[in-house]
Amino acid sequence: MVAIQSVTKKYGNSAKAAVENLSLALVPGEIFGFLGPNGAGKSTTIKMIVGLLSQDTGTITVDGLDTLKEPVLVKQRIGYVPDEPLFYEKMTANEYLQFICEIYRVPNEARQERIVRWAKRFSLHGVLDDQISSFSRGMKQKLGIVTALVHEPRLLILDEPMVGLDPKSAFILKEVMHEFCEGGRSVFFSTHVMEVAERLCTRVGIIKNGSLIACDTFHALQGRSGSGDLSLEQLFLEMTDETE
């Protein structure tokens, strides 16, 4: 689904790479959790996959399509929820979702049904005709998620998706992520909430200082550490040297 091969990215003239020689692959049907301390390179990696940033070396493919050579086709396959939701705030939620459907060429007959279905799922159907500027942070986050889902992408990429969500919405999002992968589609998400990653992810990747230091299932990581009862949080802290 996603193949990242030997990718390096530096910002401007900085000597230090934000992402260095990163390689990982996402298989269809898996939920991949991307973990790392602040500034480790998670968002940079995500922005390279969604086509906002270009890598200096290496290749990234989505469904076999190179993100730099076929950016439009790649974007068509991706549903992206950024860490900071951005909208045209003077539009109503419905206008915005209709706009997104048009951009992603969602068939006319399916649009309203999908918008209403996803809005209902995330309890936004009552505010579809409200201006986005009137939404709270959490509502905007939910609208961002609905926006990413409404065009039925093959790959869902979420950057810190749980931020701002109430417990019920966070629960629904986890359910949605599971359902999304059932049809052979994949989810790639970054989070700082280790419990969520531990329960939800098929595999997790841990990045530190731009390099991938671990990439496996939670149980395999436990086994590798030699202690079978460590939580993902403890493993993470151990690997990233962030314990006291």
């Binding site: 209709q98 459907c101 048009e102 006319n108 500027s133 009137s134």
Partner: peptide
């Protein structure tokens, strides 16, 4: 500026037709 309501519950018009993308 964060409590303005628009449309008063009326459904928004969807974009259709050949030049729907341009109109969007």
């Amino acid at each position: 500026s964060t409590t303005v309501r628009k449309n008063n519950g009326k459904s928004s018009r969807s974009y259709t037709g050949r030049y729907a993308l341009e109109w969007a």
